[in-house]
């Protein structure tokens, strides 16, 4: 009754691949999975020999599989890359303990250097310190904005040439869906790209080598390889917008496994009518990060924190940015407005 591997016809199959419908044994699955990532890397010319590449490591399944496969392919196919694990520590007592422990074990298992960049180093503030100053009600603005930039700032600080992240096919398909539902043309156009172009000194290019890897295969790869990963960090609640998109996608996949690939291809092949206005993407004049304003959101928030005006950047105070940028003094009224914090 056991199903035989459709590739080697010798061993017992352990999974049915969602992408191809093939039944594969462990060894044939490992090989197929790894070589597909290799083909993705080669086809998109993601790396050049001699580059230093930071692997974003959270200790979760995607980044653990990514680190493992990058290390393996770098050796198998002589990419000539200098690999390094990069983790971010937000500085919240207890919050990162488990995931950083996992990353530290990964470092030893894969023999890769690990750099943990802390919010303290990146921003001069830990999240705990921010909460002390800002109170509990407003910090959500801070964690969203700071988290989005942390990896980029860390990569600049560590002087890596590129960062790769563990985004998989399901993540990409889900983001395509969400951007369609929101009518976000600019993001829709960007979200299927396998890598971001380097946009000046402030931004290190990012890429997603697992872009075409199904989540199911990532989970099974980690399971059969007995990779050590941390599985309970959860960012989205099922009732959040992304949660619905995710559930919808999983429902689609259970009816037709190729739908994940189909959605990615749809996203990649969308063309936009000429003359569709795109928001102009400038860069922050202080840190060089992509920003539509003169100062990026996190520099505004930081300026507020450093000046003891924590509300700066939380509400709509865009017209004050110019003033701050040119170091002009604020009026008393403006100061008062930015100082008050409701706990």
């Amino acid at each position: 009754m056991p199903v035989l591997c459709s590739s080697c016809s010798e061993k017992r199959a352990v999974l049915k691949r969602p992408k191809t419908g093939h039944s594969l044994c462990k060894a044939c699955f490992f090989w197929a999975f790894e070589e597909e990532v290799h083909r993705t890397i080669v086809a998109a010319k993601l790396f050049r020999p001699g580059e230093t590449v930071g692997v974003a490591a959270s200790g979760g399944k995607d980044s653990t599989v990514l680190a493992h496969v990058m290390k393996l392919l770098n050796e198998r196919h002589s990419y000539g890359l200098e690999l390094m694990l990069i983790s971010v520590d937000e500085g919240i007592t207890g919050y990162r303990d488990d995931s950083l422990e996992t990353v530290k074990r990964n470092q030893q298992q894969y023999e890769l250097p690990l750099k943990i960049v802390s919010y303290e180093e990146l921003y001069g503030w830990t999240m705990d310190a921010i909460v002390k100053q800002v109170g509990l009600k407003n910090n959500c603005t801070f964690c969203g904005v700071f988290r989005r930039q942390a990896l980029d700032r860390g990569a600049v600080m560590l002087k890596v040439d590129k960062i790769c992240t563990g985004h998989n096919a399901d993540d990409v398909a889900e983001t395509v869906l969400m951007n369609i539902l929101r009518g976000d043309i600019a993001r829709l156009r960007r979200c299927t790209a396998i890598s971001t172009a380097s946009e000046g000194d402030g931004v290190v290019p990012r890429c997603k080598p697992l872009k075409y890897a199904y989540e199911k295969e990532i989970v099974l790869y980690a399971y059969f390889k007995k990779l050590d990963y941390f599985s309970t960090e959860c960012i989205y609640s099922p009732n959040a917008y992304r949660g619905y998109a995710r559930t919808f996608l999983k429902d689609l996949e259970s009816i037709r496994p190729s739908s994940i690939m189909d959605i990615i291809h749809s996203g990649e092949n969308l063309s936009f009518r000429e003359g569709v206005k795109m928001p102009v993407q400038g860069t922050c004049s202080r840190c060089g990060y992509i920003s539509s304003q003169a100062l990026c959101k996190s520099c505004v928030l930081l300026e507020g924190l450093n000046r003891g005006l924590p509300k700066l950047g939380i509400g709509k105070h865009h017209r004050l940015h110019e003033k701050i940028l040119s170091q002009q003094p604020l009026t008393e009224r403006e100061e008062r407005k930015l100082k008050s914090v409701d706990f």
Binding site: L136, C143, D170, C234, P238, R246
Partner: peptide, 20 residues
């Protein structure tokens, strides 16, 4: 479970820090 996000149990950074 494939998606670590599916259960909404482990606190997000925001959940630890913030009430709303």
């Amino acid at each position: 479970c494939m998606r670590e996000g599916s259960y909404g149990r482990m606190p997000d950074m925001c959940n630890i820090l913030s009430v709303d």
